[in-house]
Nucleic acid binder design. Sequence first.
DNA 1: GTCCATGCAAACGATTTGCATGCGT
DNA 2: ACGCATGCAAATCGTTTGCATGGAC
Lengths: 131, 131
Amino acid sequence: MKDLHSLLQTTSLKATPQRLTILKTIDDAGHISIEDIYNEIKPIFPSISLATVYKNIHSLKDENILAEIHLQNSKPKYEIKKQPHGHFICKTCNQVYDFELQNVCNPNLNEIGVINESEVYLYGICKNCKG
Amino acid sequence: MKDLHSLLQTTSLKATPQRLTILKTIDDAGHISIEDIYNEIKPIFPSISLATVYKNIHSLKDENILAEIHLQNSKPKYEIKKQPHGHFICKTCNQVYDFELQNVCNPNLNEIGVINESEVYLYGICKNCKG
DNA sequence: GTCCATGCAAACGATTTGCATGCGT
DNA sequence: ACGCATGCAAATCGTTTGCATGGAC
């Protein structure tokens, strides 16, 4: 948990137990929704409020510590910001896999504009499920 | 509008004036949110209800006539399903450009699984805005 | 001690639902 | 004529806000 603590010290946000637990929960899960964060924390930290989770997610996003991802048919999920990467979602087990993102290059794109940022979601069946 | 009518006939959905107008509005706009569909239609079809728009979007999505796209910091938008393509969003003028999607191939992906479907969002500045 | 964070409850906005009526087939 | 579609209003759900109290720095 020490590294999450120092991660917070790079921002103006205070390292409260609630905030640290939220970060740890996201880090452990990889990708997780607000409700699931709340449900995970509630049993071990009963006083926590859903509003606190929402407020924290916002401030952590504003400080660029979290990224928000939008998968088909689900509420937004959050992850600790790392190197840019794509997401592969298995439609059978719903697991989300991160993968390294090559440049999505396409000659047509030069005629459209200049890219700063990309979000790539691939859906399919993972090796585990394919058997 | 005749082609939208026959598009509906490929499904079990009835070709009501409301439904046809919704489809035409989406087709004209390219990518549009539910509220904006409603606001576009309301003046020329005052009796239409927001609930009707919602219900239709759902049934059209279920029939695979519409695709839902999620752009950063905005409500979901809808488009008529066409060939698979990516979206380039200009962060200056907010215009959405469709572009042909090459295979996003990455050696690492073979170790993860098999891809059926992909969603690619690229953000940047378009030629018009870059000047 | 200061200022930000928390937790609660109330407010809000977006979406869904139930139901009576209307309309496409 | 049948069954789905519409439009309204009410219900519901997710998210935000205001405010008094508590805790990190």
